[in-house]
Design a protein around this nucleic acid. Sequence first.
DNA 1: AACATTAGTTGCGTGTTAAG
DNA 2: CTTAACACGCAACTAATGTT
Length: 518
Amino acid sequence: MHMSGAHDGSGGPTSEELAAAGLSSSGLGLSHSIFGGASHLLPHLSQLGPPGSNPGGPAGPGNAMALLPGLGLGALPPGTSPEALLALHNAQIAALQAHGGAGQMGLSAEMLAAAASGGFAMAGGEHGQFPTLGPDMQPMGLDPATLAAVAGAQGGQMAIPLDFLSLPHLSPELLQSIQAGNLPFNMLPAGYGMAPMGSPTEQQPTADPNMVYKNWWDEEDEKELLRFVGDGEYRRLKLGSEELDWQALEAHFRRSQNALRKKYWMLSKAPMPGTMEATPKQRAERKNWTEEETAELKRLVAAQSGADGESVDWEKLAAHFGTSVQTVKRKHRHAQEHLSLASGTPASTEKGKRQHHRKNVPYRWMIVYALSQLPGLEGTALQIFDVIEGYAPFVDQLDTRIMPGTKHVPRWKIQVRKVLSADNIFRNTGHKQKHETVWQLDPVALQETNAERQRQRAGLPPFQFPTEQAEGPQGGEGAAPSQHLGMGMPHSLGLEAGQGGYGARPAHNYDEAARGRG
DNA sequence: AACATTAGTTGCGTGTTAAG
DNA sequence: CTTAACACGCAACTAATGTT
């Protein structure tokens, strides 16, 4: 695992390999480091390699080697270094991008390839047998296109045509949009990218859309509802009668009368339906409940409800505490729940100190893994949950306690959502799948963040991405310190949580080497 | 070594939106 | 009306890192 010598050995890429890659070795280092970082977090993952994998390199050369046949770049001698493998992977990327004319477009080629693959997660086998994107294997950090190509060539069924970008179903507009970095997810042809493994709808991607949106109103639905209620002529046209028949509407909208009436009521009281977004309510100042306030709240509620049954004057309480009625009610409920919880586990509540349930594997990493398993590096929170839950090494890392205020939502799911929105390596695509935001892993941001962090730690100047001039086979090799940082470093991603948790942080040889600290 | 600062992670509070 | 859940922002906490 130690990486004090990124070049320890086994010889870096040959001149030919680097030339083929068209990249400097510093560039290699970056790619290489994307996922190399957390290998120490998941030591068990190294066991997931194929039966014949080379156990020699903790950073995963064995697994990478297993992928080599798919590269189509010729057999490499055993013991080929990860750097050399990286060069080959990047050669593949370069080939893809050059072919697709998409050199500057960031994710798109990879996404398309991934989408075309219908899932590049697994190469050559069953789930659990050989995850090509395992956190302990560099290939996981490589471009999905490469992985997909590798997987396809190896397993047969997932080959990514290098000329995918010229496939007829991709319109010029679509390509242009993609190249601009805006992957129009909902424009992808049916069957591409949106039916990840475990998705309940995967077998019927073109199922009745009404079923999909049964509980979620879209603009069309809302407009139509308003029209039904307000326009007798329209009702006669559609339903055969001018009568406002909610039951008929019930069938039409596939929603209960109650829901329809309520929806209409809400729509009708909205300021300017259809023309302008309702101005969002200003968020109230966040209130931090002190213990005293919480105790007082409980006391007041107990006093009121004790005095005359159930008539708690919540409005009065809300005014008293300067919150909304809803908030004061919820706070009271939480306080009660906390009380009953605490009584069950007396040792768990110490001086009101917040308890931390730090995990060995940060949620960020789990999400990265999950998204890397989903077609196009994108998915909804629900899909991410599925992948995480389906991945055994993560399961016992999850904080499964139920989130207060919910009945059965575990905390880890809440945290995952928060990380998704807070971390800029996860991009909100702005699209929704059902009612869920579609999130996308941004490998570029990930890469930049990661590389920059490493450089900062090493006190090095900002990294310059290699340009076309960076083809000198030995140019960066041995000269640029960046490659020393980038290659095979187990400290990428900012996933520094120690293997044994924060209390048992393992020695970080890389850090020490990079900082020159002893 | 002690203290201060910074960065990353997790907990909490709350607005919003949906259905029951 | 209540309940449940999503989504997000901020606070709190911890460890790493920098400074004295």
